[in-house]
Simulated assay, not measured.
Amino acid sequence: MCDMCSPKQVVAITSCKGCLKDMCRRHFNDHREKLFKDLQNVFDLHDNLLQELQLTTNRASKSSDSNNALALFKQIDEWKAKTIERVSQAANEARANVERLFSRKAEYDQLKKKVDEITKELKDQQESESFVETDIDHWMKQLKQLKADLNRPSKVDTDPPVLQVQNIDWNTIIKISSSYNEHGKHTNLAQNQLEKGMLYLLSIKYP
């Protein structure tokens, strides 16, 4: 009997495998019509979701043009310029240290000054003819010592300086974080990493 006609006793001609009800022809036709309307509702929801997804995707693809994104791009460019400037400055300081360490100009200037003093003394004594054996021995000793000083290897030759470069973690030196990430922080740039990561040290060690 038709479950939809109850309590009337109407012969059922078929049954629905979805709702498991027995139906007469009239109720079966009504039931199928309702199912078609329900299916149309599914299509409508499907089309609406697809359209909304497309709009959202289009907006997301243009998110780089938003004011917030442009502000972040500007900060990144500023950080990049500052980093390049700091690296260049550190490299120049290291070069200056190398030049200072390997230069013996001050040492040679001091030797030249001592030689000039001996030269003047020799000429004065030669003109006055007042020198004796002890003077000659003294001058010879001084000149030999100055020659030894001139030929003595520098400290950088016997114990070369070593370049020490602090490693930089490029994966963390700059990053973008937001309020919905695991740390719960607002968007920021790791500017403070710049000075920590850009340390170039040149040192010389002597025993």
Rank of each mutant, 00 (worst) to 15 (best):
N167C: 00
M4R: 10
T56K: 05
L150W: 14
K80F: 10
A81F: 08
L122G: 02
H31L: 12
D22P: 00
T14D: 12
D137M: 12
E107W: 11
N68D: 09
A60Y: 07
H186N: 09
H46Q: 12
P207R: 15
N92A: 12
L150K: 13
L50A: 11
A106G: 02
A148T: 06
H46F: 10
E33P: 00
T187Y: 00
L199P: 01
L163E: 06
Q126R: 15
I76R: 05
Q51C: 04
N167L: 01
W79G: 06
C5A: 12
Q75Y: 07
I118D: 04
E93N: 10
T134H: 14
K123M: 07
F36K: 13
V162S: 08
S203K: 08
K112L: 14
Q126G: 14
K175T: 06
N68Q: 06
K21M: 09
N188M: 12
L143E: 13
D30C: 13
E129V: 08
L35I: 13
Q166W: 03
F28E: 12
L202G: 09
L111N: 09
N192P: 02
G197L: 01
P161K: 00
Q145T: 11
E93T: 11
D30V: 09
Q126M: 14
K21V: 06
A90P: 03
S103N: 13
C16S: 08
E121L: 10
S88M: 02
L45D: 15
N48W: 06
E78Y: 07
S128R: 14
E129I: 05
L70C: 06
H183Y: 15
F28Y: 08
V98M: 10
L189S: 07
V165R: 00
Q191G: 00
W139K: 03
R25C: 04
I84P: 00
V42N: 03
E93G: 03
F131V: 01
H46Y: 14
H186T: 06
H183G: 05
N29S: 14
K155A: 15
T158A: 04
V10D: 10
S6F: 15
Q125T: 04
T83W: 02
Q142Y: 07
K141V: 03
R59Y: 11
K144I: 12
A96F: 02
L50Q: 10
S179N: 10
K196T: 12
D30M: 12
K8C: 07
A81C: 05
V162W: 04
N167M: 02
Q142I: 13
T57M: 03
L35Q: 11
D22K: 15
Q75D: 08
L194Q: 01
L111E: 11
T83C: 07
S178H: 15
K8M: 09
K141A: 08
E93C: 01
L39N: 13
P161A: 10
V162Y: 08
L55H: 07
V10I: 15
C19I: 01
T172G: 00
F36G: 00
Y108K: 05
N167W: 01
A190N: 14
I173A: 02
G18Q: 02
Y200D: 00
F28T: 02
R26L: 10
N97Q: 06
S178P: 01
K17R: 12
F102A: 06
V162D: 07
D77A: 10
Q166K: 14
L50C: 09
K196Y: 04
M140D: 03
S103G: 05
D65F: 08
M198E: 00
Q191H: 12
N151Y: 09
D157C: 01
